[in-house]
Computed example of a mutant assay.
Amino acid sequence: MTDDKIKGPASYFPAIEKKYGRSIADWQALVRARAPARHMELVAMLKTEHGMGHGHANAIVAQTLAEEKGG
C-alpha cells in the first residue's frame, strides 16, 4: 500500500484555491512577479495586498521559491 497523501506546502493548495478563488498558478505568478525578494517580504505581500492568512501565504511562497531553485 502506498501513501499518496500530499505533504508539505502543497497540502494547503486545495484549501487556498477554494478560499481565495484563484489557482495556485495565479498566486505563484504574483510571487514570481515580485522576485527577487526575501521569503518573508513575499509572505507579507500576500497577506497585506491580498488578505491571505499567514500559513497559506507561507505555503505558496515556500513552494514557489523551491520550484525556482529546482526543488
Rank of each mutant, 00 (worst) to 15 (best):
I24E: 01
A10D: 01
T2N: 08
A44S: 13
E17L: 08
A59R: 04
I6D: 00
L65P: 07
A33N: 08
R34F: 03
N58L: 08
R38V: 13
I24H: 04
D4S: 08
T48S: 14
G53W: 01
I24Q: 09
M1K: 13
G8M: 12
E68G: 06
E67V: 00
A37F: 03
I16N: 09
P9S: 15
A10V: 07
A59W: 03
A33E: 09
H39N: 04
E49L: 05
V61G: 01
R22F: 12
A44W: 05
G55E: 06
A57S: 15
R34P: 00
E17H: 07
A35H: 04
S23A: 14
F13D: 02
E49I: 13
G21D: 09
N58E: 05
P36G: 03
D4F: 15
K69G: 04
I6Y: 02
K47T: 12
Y12D: 06
G70D: 10
A25Q: 06
E67K: 02
D3P: 10
G21E: 09
L65W: 07
M45P: 08
T2D: 01
R32W: 03
P14A: 06
K19Y: 09
E17K: 07
V43W: 00
Q28K: 12
K7T: 07
A66L: 13
S11C: 04
G8W: 13
G51C: 05
R32Y: 03
A15P: 09
H50Q: 07
A62W: 04
I16T: 10
K7N: 02
A44T: 08
R32H: 07
V43M: 00
A62P: 08
D26R: 05
M52F: 03
K5M: 05
E41Q: 15
I24V: 15
A29S: 13
G21V: 13
K19F: 05
G55C: 11
A37I: 02
G21A: 14
V31Q: 01
A37H: 05
Q28N: 06
M1R: 14
R32A: 12
G21M: 08
E17G: 11
T64V: 04
E49H: 14
A66N: 11
Y12F: 14
A29L: 03
I60P: 00
I24L: 04
G55N: 11
F13E: 02
A10P: 00
Q28H: 11
R32E: 10
M45V: 13
M45Y: 15
G21N: 08
I16H: 11
T2V: 14
T64K: 00
A10E: 13
P14Q: 07
A25W: 03
M40S: 03
T64D: 01
K18S: 15
K47G: 12
L42D: 00
P14M: 09
K19V: 13
